[in-house]
Amino acid sequence: MLASLIETCKLNGVEPHAYLADVITRIVEGHPNSRLDELLPWAYPSPSALTAVA
């Protein structure tokens, strides 16, 4: 399952390590269950989108 998640990240242009670290942090900090779809790799912001916000 983890290998599938990592490959899905790669296919969507998301760096797997940063993605997993961020998603786990968000879940621990109480990300609502009703909004879990926001944490999926294909819904995760691209690095260029994150840079534009910063």
Rank of each mutant, 00 (worst) to 15 (best):
V53N: 08
R35H: 15
L2T: 03
M1K: 08
K10I: 14
W42L: 04
I27S: 01
A21L: 04
L5Y: 09
E15A: 06
D22C: 04
A49V: 03
T8K: 15
E15F: 07
A52V: 03
V28A: 03
P16T: 02
Y44W: 13
L50T: 04
L11T: 09
A54M: 13
A49S: 12
L40A: 12
K10H: 13
A18L: 07
T25R: 14
S4C: 05
H17K: 04
P47N: 03
S4R: 13
E15N: 15
A49F: 11
V14R: 14
P47T: 03
P45L: 05
V28Q: 06
S46D: 13
P47C: 00
A21W: 02
S4P: 04
G30F: 02
A3W: 10
P16N: 09
T51Y: 15
N12W: 11
L2G: 03
P32F: 01
T8V: 10
K10V: 15
P45T: 06
N12C: 14
A21F: 00
S46M: 13
G30R: 01
S46E: 12
W42A: 03
M1E: 07
P41V: 01
V23T: 01
L40F: 08
W42P: 09
E29F: 07
A54K: 14
W42C: 00
P16Q: 04
E15T: 08
H17T: 01
A43Y: 13
V14Y: 08
L11Q: 15
H31Q: 04
L40P: 06
S46C: 12
H31M: 07
A49N: 10
T51A: 04
A54R: 15
L36F: 02
A3K: 08
V53M: 09
H17N: 12
S46Y: 15
T8H: 14
L20S: 01
L40I: 07
P47Y: 08
L39T: 00
A43W: 11
H31I: 01
S46N: 10
N33I: 06
G30N: 09
I24W: 01
H31S: 08
A49G: 02
N33F: 00
E38N: 09
N12R: 08
D37H: 13
V53D: 10
E15S: 13
R26K: 13
L2E: 07
I24C: 11
T25A: 08
L20P: 03
A21Y: 01
V53Y: 07
A43H: 12
L2V: 05
V53R: 13
N12Q: 14
P41F: 13
A18F: 12
I24E: 06
G30Q: 02
V23Q: 02
R26S: 05
A43M: 11
L5F: 09
R26D: 09
S46H: 14
S34R: 12
A54H: 14
I6Q: 10
E15C: 05
S48K: 13
P16G: 04
L5A: 10
Y19R: 00
E15L: 08
L2D: 05
P41S: 02
E38S: 05
A43L: 03
